[in-house]
Design a protein around this nucleic acid. Sequence first.
DNA 1: GATTTCTCCCCACATCTACCCACAATAATA
DNA 2: TATTATTGTGGGTAGATGTGGGGAGAAATC
Lengths: 150, 150
Amino acid sequence: MITSFAGESKHFLDEKSRLSIPAKYRRWLTEEEAEYTFVITKGADPCLIAYPAVEWDKFAEKLRNLSQFKKKNRAFIRTWSRNSIRLKCDKQGRILMPQRLLDFANIKKEVVIIGALNYLELWDPEVLKEHQESQIPLDDDYFEDLADIF
Amino acid sequence: MITSFAGESKHFLDEKSRLSIPAKYRRWLTEEEAEYTFVITKGADPCLIAYPAVEWDKFAEKLRNLSQFKKKNRAFIRTWSRNSIRLKCDKQGRILMPQRLLDFANIKKEVVIIGALNYLELWDPEVLKEHQESQIPLDDDYFEDLADIF
DNA sequence: GATTTCTCCCCACATCTACCCACAATAATA
DNA sequence: TATTATTGTGGGTAGATGTGGGGAGAAATC
């Protein structure tokens, strides 16, 4: 049973565009892994995010409290929803990745899976490398601000 | 069984104006899909909204709390009701779309189906594109407000 | 009541999905 | 180290799904 993801590992899409989810990530809040489901969305960074379905559902539940009579709420819900897809692992623990999402993250064959808190990030290795290099290093000010929280 | 819709997919009306509802959207709160029923209404945005009948019934229940003594309430309920149609999927999971509703959303052949929380949005691809482009981006203030909720 | 239009069941079939089995690779245990 | 269990990978195939169209019966119209 897992309550917080961690770690990084490299995997490969097979000929059928299936991605094997490492066994250690299949036990979110449970020992069962049958019928395990993720919701995959486009990330704010050029990667894909995979939430355990129960986690995504919690967020969706909150979004339902937003009034449909506000245009901005509808726009936000629409954008959020259309980029999310609910996908079930097969009995071998693999997910059939839609081409549309693979294209977004520029994933071709190799996939770096990063376990982060309550979600997984899926990166193309090259994109991840470039993204890390172009990243402005976290400065002291950032950690000063963090200090307000912790 | 689904408790929250997600995703986007493109479909086509056939010669008989039938729209195939993707199988993954036919299992709202149930594993059964026989006799599956949606209520379709005109959206606040230029699209159609399809609620699983049980969800629409919940909303209708809320509307009953509006006082009948207010003219604007009566007008709103009237408009809402006459624009809503209860439609059953045929045995192949298709819905026969009334021309009047198709015209409202300017749907001709292609239909983008967006799964959003507890309803589906049905868009003409062109209209959706234009709508998204003309949309004022969600600004910082909006997310500041959201932060109060989450 | 007769005719036309509409609705929806049924069948057909191409495509896609996900199950199953096989087995290699890795990790865990004796 | 040998043995066993778990995990990852590949690929065939049955069943699910999406799409088209004929036609019987219902509904609307004349």
